[in-house]
Computed example of a mutant assay.
Amino acid sequence: MSADLVAFMNARLDEDEQFAQGPWGDNGYSEYNEPGAPGHHLRVLAEVDAKRRIIATCNHVLAYEDHGHWLANQTLAILAMPYRDHPNYQPEWAPDA
């Protein structure tokens, strides 16, 4: 499960990053947000970077560590929740209740 979920998340983050790097004008402001506000492209890029680091850490735990697999899998599943309406999202990726 985790390798497919990691690939899915990386693809979604690529899409988020590409969107956030869209045309924002010379001043770096979107037309509807101040820097640091939810949805502002610079904040989205920072969130993408943070999520990539979390995913890399989880992937490392799953590949090389003896402990922490449940937590790493749950973390990945929780990070994927906002994308659950995406056509490539798999129901088995839902986090444990």
Rank of each mutant, 00 (worst) to 15 (best):
Q74K: 03
Q18T: 10
L62V: 03
W70G: 06
Y29E: 11
R53N: 05
L76W: 01
W24E: 11
A56L: 03
A77C: 08
D14M: 12
L13E: 07
A56Q: 01
R43T: 13
D26C: 06
W70P: 07
Y29W: 10
Y64S: 03
Q74L: 02
A56H: 02
A80E: 06
L13H: 10
R12H: 05
R53V: 11
E34C: 09
D14T: 05
H67P: 07
N73P: 14
R52L: 11
S30I: 09
H69D: 04
N33Q: 14
R12V: 05
Q21C: 13
D14Y: 04
N33M: 11
M81L: 13
R12K: 03
Y29A: 14
D16N: 15
A56D: 02
Q18R: 10
D16C: 13
Y32A: 12
Q18E: 15
A63P: 10
E34D: 13
T57L: 05
V48L: 01
N59H: 06
S30K: 02
F19I: 09
W24K: 06
M81G: 14
P35K: 01
H60Y: 12
D16S: 13
E17A: 12
N27M: 06
D14S: 12
Y64T: 09
A20F: 10
L13A: 09
P23C: 10
Q21Y: 09
T75C: 02
M81A: 14
N33K: 11
G22D: 07
D49Q: 11
H41P: 04
L76D: 00
A63I: 10
Y32R: 09
D14Q: 15
G28M: 07
H40D: 08
A11Y: 08
L71T: 11
V44A: 13
M81S: 11
H40G: 15
G25V: 03
A46S: 10
P38Y: 05
L13T: 06
G22R: 11
S30E: 05
Q18Y: 13
A63H: 09
A77W: 03
A63K: 07
S30M: 03
A11D: 06
A20P: 08
G68F: 00
V61L: 00
E31V: 15
F19A: 04
Y29G: 11
W24N: 08
H69A: 01
Q18P: 06
K51E: 06
A77N: 07
P38N: 04
L42E: 15
R43K: 13
N33C: 14
V44W: 04
L71I: 10
L42Y: 12
V44H: 13
G36W: 14
A63R: 08
H60L: 05
E34F: 08
A20Y: 14
Q21T: 14
R12F: 01
P35I: 01
G68R: 00
V48R: 01
P38G: 02
G39H: 09
C58I: 02
N73H: 06
M81Y: 02
L45T: 05
E65A: 05
L79H: 13
I55S: 03
